[in-house]
Simulated scan of single mutants.
Amino acid sequence: MSERLPRTPLFPPVETALVEPNGLLAMGGDLSAARLLEAYRHGIFPWFNPGEPILWWSPDPRMVLVPGEVRVTRSLARRIRNGGFVVRVDTAFADVMRACAAPRQGESGTWISPAMVAAYTRLFEMGYAHSVETWHGDRLVGGLYGVAIGHMFYGESMFSREPDASKVALVRLAQQLQRWNFGLIDCQMETSHLASLGARTMPRATFTARLAELVNLNHRPGPWRFDAPD
């Protein structure tokens, strides 16, 4: 059984997470900035549906992307060069979260509730959460958001309103994080979409050991500005 959380922002060891469902560690608590940052520092993230208690996860294995290993196919490279996209960072955080929260085709709901939007907006205002946005003219057509601590980036969600728009944002993010010597992008759960971009699975023990190093490196507060070559 997953453990109930106390009011203070503490978590049980990730090794005690359930095998089925994979990674369920605890329930309850709140979405305060202190608890969220404590969770991320230990490789834990919240994921729950509206009306459920807050559920905290640390799956094994973990899907990660090393910034220097992002895979850009020829077709994606052409889209980046010729698609008319402009990538910006931290200029439309709330808009990106709302776009990620919109129901996807074939889905009836979303786990990104108003409470989640409010919680991550607080992290954005504190300089920990970031949005990477793909623009086509004056239209926001894709992007992603996540949390950065030290030299670790935790991807949370992506969206696309035009083909490849979220991929363009992820590639640009990876290029910049490589320039800043970030070690990993956490992708949380394994998907074929992320695998096609170079993400791979990593045992949880390896992930948390690497995490312990990266989160203690110098933090780069937001708002961010990218300076890596396109």
Rank of each mutant, 00 (worst) to 15 (best):
G68T: 14
D164S: 11
E15H: 14
S32G: 11
R62M: 12
Q188P: 03
G155T: 04
V147I: 13
R79Y: 04
R225T: 11
A165K: 03
R79S: 09
A102L: 13
G43N: 05
G83Q: 05
Y154S: 13
Y154P: 00
L173V: 03
S108E: 15
G23F: 01
V171D: 04
H193T: 06
V132T: 04
P21C: 15
A101R: 09
C187L: 08
R4W: 15
G28R: 04
M63W: 02
W47M: 12
N49K: 13
L25G: 02
P103F: 10
R172H: 09
G155N: 03
A169S: 15
E125R: 15
F93P: 04
M63A: 15
W135R: 03
M152Q: 06
Y40K: 00
G68N: 14
I149N: 00
P13L: 08
F124G: 01
R7H: 14
S196Y: 09
V147D: 01
S192T: 13
L55P: 00
L211M: 05
C187V: 08
I44M: 06
R35M: 06
M63L: 15
Q105T: 11
V147L: 05
T73F: 10
R71V: 12
L170G: 01
R41N: 10
S113Q: 09
V132P: 00
V19R: 15
E107I: 12
R200T: 13
E190C: 07
V86W: 06
R200H: 14
A174R: 01
T208A: 09
V14T: 09
E162F: 03
E125M: 11
L18K: 11
P13D: 08
G183L: 00
L144Y: 02
V66F: 06
T91L: 13
R98M: 13
R225V: 10
W180H: 04
E3G: 04
P103Q: 12
G183S: 08
H219W: 03
E213C: 07
R172K: 11
A199P: 02
R79E: 08
L55H: 02
